[in-house]
Each structure stands twice: as C-alpha cells, then as structure tokens.
Amino acid sequence: MVKKRERLEVIHDILTAIKNNNNDLKPTRLLYSSNLSPQMFKDYVVELLDKGFIEEIFNEKEKKSYALTNKGFKFLEEYKVIIGFIENFGL
C-alpha cells in the first residue's frame, strides 16, 4: 500500500513543482503534478495563497498561473530542517 503523504510533504511537492517549472505553473498542470484530488488540491492552494507561500499571476491573455513568493522559496530552503526537527524531537 502506498504511504499517505504528510501535509508538509504535499506542500513541498506543490512548491517544488512550481519552482521546477521556472516558477510559473498553470493550475491544471499543477493539479496533475500534485497527485491530489481536485477538492484537496483546491484546499491546499487556498491555504498556500492565504499563508503567502504562492501567488497568482496572470499572463497577457489573462490566463492564471502560480508562482512562489519569497516565503515559498524560504520554505523549500528550510524544508529539510523542518522535517529534521520533527523527526529529531518525535513530533
């Protein structure tokens, strides 16, 4: 059985997918990359927008895509430290 991903792992995967696409990824492609159900994907995106990890950007044709904010980049930088902390302190 495939292990259920933890919340932080899902956030990491979403942010990494955006970063690896030149920090500009359309919602549909992000949904595919995230391996989440549409409802869960929506919940995560709303949370990431609320917390300021990602932002919406619009191209000249008014098509929406997502980009990481500085906080989003910071999260990716610190991800290993966060996971290390959780493991080391049994949280």
Binding site: E78, I82, F85, I86, F89, L91
Partner: peptide
C-alpha cells in the same frame, strides 16, 4: 528558534514544543 520553524511549517507539534 522554534517559532521561526513554526512560521514556515505551521506544524502543530512544532508550535506546542
């Protein structure tokens, strides 16, 4: 130090610690 990690992760275990 822990608060800095919590601000990024919003992990409840980190917050409690």
């Amino acid at each position: 130090k822990v608060k800095k990690l919590y601000d990024l992760s919003l992990h409840r275990g980190i917050k409690l610690f």
